[in-house]
Structure formats: C-alpha cells, structure tokens
C-alpha cells in the first residue's frame, strides 16, 4: 500500500465561543498526490481558509491530522510555503530582499551567498519580475506584488504550495495573466499545489481536482471533481470545449443548486 504524498485525515476544527463549541470544519478526508493541483472551492465562511491554515500549520486542528511526505504537520514551515491573499510582502524590503529573506532562511546553510543570490533572481525570473527586483512593494501594482509573493513561496522549494485566494484582489485581466504564469510554473516544476478560490473558471482552468466544500457550520467536503483536461491548457481553446463547459456546469450546480448559501437564497 502506498501512502499519498499529502493526506488530511478526519480533520476537524472546533472554536470555543463563550461556553459553546462551534464546529467550523468536520471530518475532512483528502489525499493529494505529488504534482497535483487541487483547488478548494466553496462559499465564504465554509472553512476553506481554515483548512488551508491547518495544512500550513498556522492553525492547529482540533481533530484528525495532516501528514505530508510521511510526517505529521504540527507547526508552520517553509516546506508548506503560503501565498497569502494580500501578498504580505514586507513593505520595507525590495522585491529582491523579500525573496532573499526566504532564500537565506531556507538555504542559509546549504547554499553559498552567490548561489542564494542566483536562486533569488531565478525565482523572480520565473514569475516574470526580474525587471523590478529593486522596487519596493508600494512601487508595484497589485498583480506584481502577488507575483513576488509567489516567487517568495516558490523560492522555498516547498513540498506543497499553498495559495489562499491568490488572485482574489486582482482585476480580471491581471488575474488571467497570473493564472497563466502559475500554470506555466506548475507544469515546469511539477509542484504540488492547494489553492483556495471562489472563482469557478479559475478552479476548472488550473486544477487537476476540485474539492467542493459544503456550507458551515460543520463544513466538510461535499464532492471532489476530477478535471481531466490535457495540459498545457489554454483559456481560449477551453472556452468552447465541451468537457470544460461540463466541468464548469457541475461546479456551478454544486455551489448554487445543492449548496446555495442559505442567506443568499
């Protein structure tokens, strides 16, 4: 029996509010293979971010556990690099320094200074940000900041890349560009990725599997959809591809028919 690369086993999360216990997430079971791109989609408040934070180790789950590459996750670490929703670059550092901080921390003992310099630039080049290495975040557009955030995460050579609505704050065109960049990088590096999103097109376009969450409280996985579309995928070709439209429809049906947000209904 082979173990999956990353597995969530009976993961649950309770919050104590006053004297009462609130079950945010219950019984989440999920196995992810190496190199797989998995999206988690669901209405806001369904615990997607909680789930991602548990995998990141930023939040301790109250039930079950997460096993990555044979080891239990119980604290944050660079092997589970996070791309935060609002980029969270340090504003007093340049793009280069933001990535370099991560590189120095992760490879401080295994790579020489020159190698770390090259590795920093290499990762900025991957996200097409090598033209702005010396710019501070406030001199960069929202999309550029997110690119640097992705470069910082990639530079840690994580076992799994965690992205928390990475393109949520971007306009549609910028978002499309970044999605293409992420697809290109994921194909090239064969990274394992978990991405939180609330954008159905984004989920279908990028993912190998789409995990659809039911609404909270006691949110859990409602359905897992395998997206069997050949890579590399191009958004133009897919827009009238019958399978793409089918996948899209089934995610929409899940979200708006079977698990419509109660207050939205």
């Amino acid at each position: 029996m082979t173990h999956p690369y990353l597995s969530l086993e009976n993961v649950g999360m309770d919050f104590r509010v006053g004297g009462r216990v609130f079950h945010a997430v219950t019984d989440v079971n999920l196995s992810i293979d190496r190199g797989q791109f998995v999206s988690i989609i669901g209405h806001s408040g369904c615990g997607k971010s909680t789930l991602l934070n548990i995998v990141a180790g930023l939040t301790r789950c109250t039930a079950g556990g997460v096993i990555l590459d044979g080891q239990e996750v119980n604290s944050p670490g660079p092997d589970r690099a996070v791309v935060f929703q609002n980029h969270s670059l340090l504003p007093w550092l340049t793009a280069y320094q933001n990535v370099r901080l991560a590189v120095d921390k992760v490879f401080g003992s295994s790579k020489s200074a020159a190698e770390r310099h090259d590795w920093t630039l290499h990762n900025l080049r991957l996200v097409h940000m090598d033209h702005a290495v010396d710019k501070r975040p406030d001199e960069l557009s929202g999309g550029m900041k997110q690119r640097v955030g992705i470069a910082r995460a990639l530079a840690m050579e994580p076992k799994v890349l965690l992205m928390d609505e990475p393109f949520g704050a971007l306009d549609a065109l910028t978002r499309a560009h970044l999605q293409d960049t992420v697809m290109e990088i994921q194909t090239r590096l064969n990274s394992t990725v978990i991405m939180i999103t609330h954008d159905v097109d984004e989920a279908v376009l990028l993912s190998d599997r789409i995990v659809m969450m039911t609404n909270g409280p006691s949110a859990t996985i409602g359905e897992v959809l395998t997206v069997d579309l050949p890579r590399p995928r191009r958004r133009l070709d897919l827009s009238d591809d019958a399978r793409y439209i089918g996948y899209r429809a089934s995610v929409l049906r899940f979200l708006y028919e079977r698990h419509a947000k109660p207050e939205a209904a």
């Binding site: 180790g57 660079p78 589970r80 969270s88 901080l101 991560a102 840690m156």
Partner: peptide, 29 residues
C-alpha cells in the same frame, strides 16, 4: 504588526531575534 507579517515569520521559522530585527523593528519604526 499585521498578522500576515507574523504568519510570514512563522512560515519562514524566524527565530525570536530574527523576528525582532527583521519584522518587528522595521514594522513599528
């Protein structure tokens, strides 16, 4: 200091001293 910066520090596993000099001081200057 935004929780995001603290999360970055945790993911990077900055030591308390590194956190002080690399995040806390610059952020609160």
């Amino acid at each position: 200091i935004p929780q995001d910066y603290r999360n970055v520090a945790r993911v990077l596993r900055l030591s308390p001293l590194e956190f002080f000099f690399r995040i806390m001081l610059p952020s609160s200057v």
